[in-house]
């Protein structure tokens, strides 16, 4: 019995250590190293899980987005085939497969570039030419962005992220785009407001307030939920986007993939 108590003590002390560490939700050591936490505290303080079946909530939230009420004249839907560049963070794990379906259904070419653990600060860093390089190389006619999830809880968001968001939008230039906001799992410190302020009317889809079924990390929507998320964006687009494009709902069997039509690239966090 005594050695069972010892083992339990080891486990309990380790558990306590990680619990305390997760209270700080990551401790920065130096400029480039962060002691990642197990996220226990975040998991405990999270709102209760909801199911993905709440797609109606998704739609309601979308139509309530502040910019949805902005006054602008939405252009008619462009039905021509597009070259779409879809960039973002790990949220593209769930969104990208559904985007592939949409592109196959509607004959668009897709370049999806997923950069794990990335943020507006990384994509919009003055020292990073990744986005401008991608745009120069692929010459997209439409850009989808999903960034902000890794900056939901940082302080001084305007100072830290404002210039980076400006740089991203400058890189995109006059190319039509949609910025899909991060799927908050708790209230953010201002990243959604910042993006909504910086983007043009009819280009920001507010995801905050939607109900998602989450993976066990409590942050990422599950694949079916992410698919519903993208469906909501596409349903929102014709009436609310400044420059909507044809995005008919995918129907099985999907049209066959043409050579070079779909390109998925992934970059690891520290690359």
């Amino acid at each position: 019995m005594r050695h069972y108590k010892e083992l339990w003590t080891i486990l309990a002390l380790a558990f306590a250590f990680f619990f305390i560490l997760s209270y700080f939700d990551g401790i920065a050591i130096g400029d480039s190293f962060e002691l990642r936490s197990a996220g226990f505290v975040r998991a405990l303080t999270d709102a209760p899980r909801k199911t993905a079946a709440a797609d109606t909530t998704v739609l309601a939230a979308a139509s309530d987005a502040p910019e949805a009420k902005a006054t602008f004249a939405p252009a008619p839907t462009d039905t021509t085939a597009q070259t779409i560049l879809f960039i973002g963070d790990s949220m593209l794990d769930g969104l990208s497969p559904r985007m592939v379906d949409y592109c196959l259904q509607n004959g668009h070419k897709l370049i999806s570039f997923r950069w794990y653990s990335s943020s507006t600060s990384k994509w919009g860093s003055p020292s990073s030419s990744l986005l401008s390089d991608l745009i120069a190389k692929h010459k997209p006619s439409y850009v989808f962005i999903c960034l902000g999830a890794n900056e939901l809880f940082i302080n001084n968001v305007d100072t830290k992220c404002g210039p980076a968001v400006d740089n991203i939008l400058a890189d995109i230039g006059s190319t039509p785009y949609i910025w899909i906001g991060p799927p908050n799992w708790k209230p953010d410190t201002g990243i959604n407001d910042l993006i909504a302020r910086k983007t043009r009317p009819g280009t920001f889809f507010l995801s905050n307030g939607m109900s998602f079924e989450r993976r066990k990390d409590g942050a990422h929507p599950t694949d079916p939920s992410a698919a519903m998320w993208l469906d909501s964006v596409m349903r929102w687009m014709p009436a609310h986007a400044a420059q909507p494009i044809r995005m008919d709902s995918p129907r099985k069997p999907l049209p066959a993939k043409a050579p070079g039509q779909i390109s998925i690239r992934i970059r690891q966090p520290n690359e």
Partner: peptide, 24 residues
Amino acid sequence: PLWAKLLIFILVVQTVLQLQGEDV
């Protein structure tokens, strides 16, 4: 000793946290 076992366990788990991808 027990403290060494505890340290090794913590090191292993922290390494898991440091290296884990966005999804397990």
